[in-house]
Amino acid sequence: MAAGGDHGSPDSYRSPLASRYASPEMCFVFSDRYKFRTWRQLWLWLAEAEQTLGLPITDEQIQEMKSNLENIDFKMAAEEEKRLRHDVMAHVHTFGHCCPKAAGIIHLGATSCYVGDNTDLIILRNALDLLLPKLARVISRLADFAKERASLPTLGFTHFQPAQLTTVGKRCCLWIQDLCMDLQNLKRVRDDLRFRGVKGTTGTQASFLQLFEGDDHKVEQLDKMVTEKAGFKRAFIITGQTYTRKVDIEVLSVLASLGASVHKICTDIRLLANLKEMEEPFEKQQIGSSAMPYKRNPMRSERCCSLARHLMTLVMDPLQTASVQWFERTLDDSANRRICLAEAFLTADTILNTLQNISEGLVVYPKVIERRIRQELPFMATENIIMAMVKAGGSRQDCHEKIRVLSQQAASVVKQEGGDNDLIERIQVDAYFSPIHSQLDHLLDPSSFTGRASQQVQRFLEEEVYPLLKPYESVMKVKAELCL
């Protein structure tokens, strides 16, 4: 049975990233139509530049190519590739079939990587351009969430054990800070992308030097003109047959890092959902379990974690691919890159769409948070109580021993009897502590235990987050809708 299948058929496997999760716009960027249309555009740009620099290419040939950029006979191309065992030459023939007058000058002087690699770089750039505003929107939604809850005390956790208090907004800023680093890295790697350009079979530009009869300047002009037509500021000066596969490492490393950030955020949300302090959106008709109707599973956060793990592992592909590119190139890269580049971007696209949807509907339960604080705060307040007693004339050592005994009794009630923490009640009825009984409410005010959390939130948002989001103001209103 021949390899390949009808990918629109229910009898043929289709990647869930495309069929179930990723956005239509990201799927289109990695589609065959987008790819092969870009090949034709690159052939047109090459012909236009070659004509401008004096090669015998007519206006009629150029116009014929322009008129057929979208006229792609995919069936013919597939048949040609089956016959020739070469995808680029299959599309040269297919393009030439609908451009008979231009057929002889299509791909003039070029090698397969002229269309293959340059198209990949265009796709990487455009895919990054799709991700950047999506990530900015996630940051914006979380920034709104953090600002609104900047002063809401909550129990902090280290080692997932109760620690000092923080605020809900401050905790959210930990998430935002990681995503801001990801946004900066995505922008950097996007701006650092260079075009492969017009380089020939081993990167020496020998074929173009021959076409222009040894004119170095025209060869350099050709490279520059096509690079500018493709919208790049610069091209690699040095290439082998391909652009260095280190570029793929750079791009997928940034995406993998984004995956790590999203995994951490969504894990926190899942843990908070278990504590009943916070939940992701839950639709009115949504079913959490087929057997347990009360369940409210954090399905979206779980999906993000599941896909983020996949995204983090994909960076190993370009690392290994770059390491086995012998001399000017081997074909070890080809099949692998067809999979890992598309999957990385479709996965990143999915987790950003999902995280935006989550961040637009996060639900906080202040009463649950308050109750958990009441359970733990008495123990945390013991040092403040000791200091207040010393100020009232008591002995630190005597007070410490009193607190120690009462704390152990209260802990026994919590752990052995399943009761509430009654340390404060014990202190309130103990005559030894009568000098500070009137101060206990103040000493137990949760806001006095959150330090500068709310001020940190305000400063972080104003100095770091809002300036970073400013270039994306025009796209901030787009909502994230999930079908599944």
Results as ranks from 00 to 15, higher is better:
residue 309 R to W: 03
residue 231 G to A: 11
residue 452 R to V: 10
residue 271 L to Y: 04
residue 43 W to M: 07
residue 236 F to L: 11
residue 453 A to T: 11
residue 375 Q to K: 04
residue 321 T to I: 10
residue 20 R to K: 06
residue 227 T to M: 08
residue 458 Q to C: 13
residue 107 H to G: 00
residue 476 M to W: 15
residue 135 L to E: 07
residue 252 L to H: 11
residue 171 R to L: 02
residue 147 K to V: 10
residue 287 I to A: 09
residue 186 L to W: 07
residue 369 I to G: 08
residue 231 G to E: 08
residue 66 K to W: 13
residue 68 N to C: 10
residue 274 N to K: 07
residue 38 T to F: 08
residue 93 H to V: 14
residue 322 A to S: 09
residue 460 F to C: 07
residue 296 R to F: 08
residue 464 E to K: 04
residue 277 E to I: 03
residue 432 Y to V: 09
residue 458 Q to E: 13
residue 6 D to Q: 03
residue 13 Y to A: 14
residue 71 N to G: 11
residue 115 V to I: 15
residue 86 H to G: 02
residue 205 Q to F: 00
residue 244 T to R: 01
residue 5 G to A: 10
residue 52 T to W: 08
residue 124 L to S: 12
residue 364 V to K: 01
residue 114 Y to K: 00
residue 483 C to H: 11
residue 359 S to E: 07
residue 13 Y to N: 12
residue 353 N to M: 13
residue 199 K to L: 02
residue 234 R to F: 08
residue 52 T to K: 13
residue 49 A to H: 02
residue 213 E to Y: 07
residue 311 L to D: 01
residue 227 T to F: 07
residue 215 D to R: 13
residue 13 Y to S: 09
residue 310 H to N: 08
residue 33 R to A: 12
residue 79 E to W: 13
residue 219 V to Q: 06
residue 5 G to V: 10
residue 296 R to S: 08
residue 168 V to G: 02
residue 158 T to Q: 00
residue 445 D to N: 13
residue 222 L to A: 08
residue 395 S to P: 05
residue 267 T to E: 04
residue 166 T to G: 09
residue 240 G to M: 05
residue 277 E to F: 04
residue 367 K to G: 10
residue 5 G to H: 07
residue 95 F to I: 07
residue 137 R to Y: 05
residue 70 E to T: 15
residue 41 Q to S: 11
residue 228 E to N: 08
residue 399 C to G: 08
residue 423 L to N: 04
residue 307 L to P: 01
residue 94 T to G: 11
residue 13 Y to Q: 10
residue 315 V to H: 10
residue 292 M to S: 04
residue 218 K to I: 08
residue 347 T to G: 12
residue 231 G to L: 07
residue 176 I to G: 04
residue 161 Q to C: 05
residue 213 E to L: 15
residue 208 F to Y: 07
residue 228 E to D: 11
residue 272 L to H: 05
residue 25 E to F: 05
residue 261 S to R: 02
residue 89 M to E: 00
residue 21 Y to T: 00
residue 348 A to L: 09
residue 372 R to I: 06
residue 474 S to E: 15
residue 340 C to F: 14
residue 331 L to P: 00
residue 57 I to V: 10
residue 284 K to M: 14
residue 76 M to P: 06
residue 336 N to C: 11
residue 51 Q to D: 04
residue 322 A to Q: 12
residue 103 A to M: 13
residue 135 L to G: 09
residue 220 E to D: 12
residue 422 D to P: 12
residue 386 I to Q: 06
residue 135 L to V: 14
residue 80 E to Y: 09
residue 24 P to R: 13
residue 20 R to T: 01
residue 418 G to Y: 02
